[in-house]
Amino acid sequence: MLQSYLPALVFIAVATLIAISFVGAGAVIGPKARAIGEKEDAYECGLPSDVKQGFKFGVSFYLVAMLFILFDIEVIFLYPIAVQLGAFGVFALIETIVFIVLLTVALIYVWRRGALEWK
């Protein structure tokens, strides 16, 4: 069974070779980098960078990340049922409906609590 993943390793090996040659090409055939004055600064305009003093992000980013974990795991649980749905018939159908209804209730809950509003 694991042998069917052999081509994936070959793809990754070929891609790694090309990626290394892409990223490394500049160091080999490009002109040598020399740090002159402010050339090494990050590309920014306006006030100096505040990245290093702990950059703060809106709480919505973290909420979305948590919701993603919940819903993505539920989607992954749907896949095995989906494959065997025809084989198990009505029993699997009832299980699926219960599962999707639970998922929907969770979605409505976070929606009404305002977790989906971007702030």
């Binding site: 990223v23 055939i29 980098a33 990050a42």
Partner: peptide
């Protein structure tokens, strides 16, 4: 693009940047 100078800003983390 491949013939360009190899450059990274001073505030970057070399290993992850590449």
């Amino acid at each position: 693009l491949l013939g360009k100078e190899n450059f990274r800003p001073s505030g970057s983390a070399a290993f992850l940047f590449y």
